[in-house]
Amino acid sequence: MSIQHFRVALIPFFAAFCLPVFAHPETLVKVKDAEDQLGARVGYIELDLNSGKILESFRPEERFPMMSTFKVLLCGAVLSRVDAGQEQLGRRIHYSQNDLVEYSPVTEKHLTDGMTVRELCSAAITMSDNTAANLLLTTIGGPKELTAFLHNMGDHVTRLDRWEPELNEAIPNDERDTTMPAAMATTLRKLLTGELLTLASRQQLIDWMEADKVAGPLLRSALPAGWFIADKSGAGERGSRGIIAALGPDGKPSRIVVIYTTGSQATMDERNRQIAEIGASLIKHW
């Protein structure tokens, strides 16, 4: 067993022997301040990774656009098919120029040779490549099948209805392509620590998230040296922004954090800054 596999296998073990965790309302004060600064709703939840206990939450059962955070769930569904012998990570998928959609920095470079399922998941999570996500959605049967996968996990809230990039439209009061912070946090925890996926697939999923290259201005910008984070960000229309993450000190994750916002007129930089400040408060009061 590799060191990384050992780390993920012992996530519940280490967490069980940690000192009790206590909620700190100071972080919620910052979440509410972010709402004021952005002029928009902000949803927040913080779960203990081992027990699933909610440590703090704000608007945990209000719907927010998922945006690209759905790509972690998508690759979880792909990995479940791999575990069941219905898919192979090494299978190569070929596609054409007509398949390319807006923001496809990886797939646009491989029109000639195609990409493997493993490479597509890596591109979808680490670079948020939209064509990679659409190609992977095709392998599982489309958005409705991802929703069905989530329902089978016990998540009857999260739903995907459309493809990239239309799913980022974020129309107010439109339930399409949305989740709730509580539902997303619980589902992410199941994917990373539950028995739904094999140990190898859980490790692969967290490795992809740990290698995320496009979430630097968010929670990662607030992390002290030595902290662990595996995350996936999302951005959408109407001032929408979000991030889902597993993080913790001492090089291992111990909490799940989900943050979503929508309806702001603020710039992307300002949305990023507010999420980073929430992260800084979380870490300060850990």
Results as ranks from 00 to 15, higher is better:
residue 173 N to L: 15
residue 52 G to H: 06
residue 77 A to G: 08
residue 30 K to V: 11
residue 170 A to G: 13
residue 50 N to S: 13
residue 62 E to C: 07
residue 242 G to H: 02
residue 99 D to W: 07
residue 48 D to R: 04
residue 271 R to T: 11
residue 113 D to H: 11
residue 115 M to H: 03
residue 265 Q to H: 15
residue 264 S to R: 05
residue 139 T to M: 10
residue 170 A to R: 08
residue 178 T to K: 02
residue 81 R to N: 12
residue 47 L to V: 14
residue 74 L to E: 04
residue 16 A to L: 15
residue 275 I to D: 00
residue 63 R to W: 04
residue 266 A to L: 14
residue 249 P to W: 04
residue 260 Y to F: 15
residue 79 L to W: 01
residue 150 L to T: 09
residue 103 Y to E: 03
residue 55 L to S: 06
residue 273 R to T: 12
residue 2 S to E: 05
residue 69 T to Q: 01
residue 165 P to T: 10
residue 218 L to M: 10
residue 256 I to P: 00
residue 66 M to D: 00
residue 174 D to P: 04
residue 42 V to N: 04
residue 140 I to Y: 09
residue 265 Q to Y: 12
residue 249 P to D: 07
residue 250 D to N: 15
residue 74 L to M: 09
residue 162 R to C: 06
residue 45 I to M: 13
residue 28 L to G: 07
residue 65 P to T: 04
residue 6 F to N: 10
residue 145 E to W: 09
residue 270 E to D: 15
residue 243 I to S: 02
residue 92 R to Y: 10
residue 48 D to T: 05
residue 193 T to D: 09
residue 168 N to T: 07
residue 132 A to K: 00
residue 230 A to C: 14
residue 191 L to D: 00
residue 160 L to A: 11
residue 238 R to A: 09
residue 56 E to T: 12
residue 6 F to S: 08
residue 108 E to Q: 10
residue 49 L to F: 14
residue 130 N to E: 01
residue 271 R to H: 07
residue 183 A to L: 07
residue 69 T to G: 02
residue 232 K to I: 00
residue 212 D to T: 06
residue 222 A to F: 08
residue 249 P to V: 06
residue 36 D to A: 15
residue 277 E to D: 12
residue 184 M to V: 09
residue 87 E to S: 06
residue 167 L to E: 03
residue 82 V to C: 11
residue 220 R to Y: 02
residue 103 Y to N: 06
residue 264 S to L: 04
residue 151 H to V: 12
residue 69 T to W: 00
residue 9 A to D: 05
residue 276 A to Q: 12
residue 58 F to D: 02
residue 115 M to Q: 07
residue 173 N to Q: 15
residue 116 T to C: 07
residue 126 T to R: 07
residue 267 T to D: 14
residue 243 I to L: 11
residue 96 S to E: 13
residue 37 Q to T: 12
residue 281 S to D: 08
residue 190 K to N: 14
residue 75 C to L: 05
residue 28 L to T: 09
residue 156 H to I: 15
residue 244 I to A: 07
residue 204 Q to T: 14
residue 245 A to R: 00
residue 187 T to Y: 03
residue 237 E to P: 15
residue 60 P to R: 12
residue 13 F to G: 07
residue 122 S to K: 13
residue 50 N to E: 14
residue 138 T to C: 12
residue 77 A to Q: 14
residue 224 P to R: 06
residue 5 H to C: 09
residue 160 L to M: 12
residue 232 K to V: 00
residue 9 A to G: 11
residue 271 R to E: 05
residue 264 S to M: 06
residue 95 Y to K: 01
residue 32 K to C: 09
residue 255 R to W: 01
residue 46 E to Q: 12
residue 130 N to P: 01
residue 118 R to F: 13
residue 8 V to D: 11
residue 122 S to G: 12
residue 85 G to E: 11
residue 253 P to N: 08
residue 157 V to S: 12
residue 188 L to M: 12
residue 41 R to E: 07
residue 40 A to C: 08
residue 241 R to V: 04
residue 196 L to S: 15
residue 36 D to F: 15
residue 268 M to V: 09
residue 101 V to R: 08
residue 89 L to S: 06
residue 81 R to G: 06
residue 190 K to C: 10
residue 111 L to Y: 10
residue 37 Q to P: 04
residue 259 I to A: 04
residue 12 P to Y: 13
residue 237 E to Y: 12
residue 207 D to T: 13
residue 156 H to D: 14
residue 119 E to V: 02
residue 31 V to H: 01
residue 278 I to M: 09
residue 240 S to E: 09
residue 229 I to D: 01
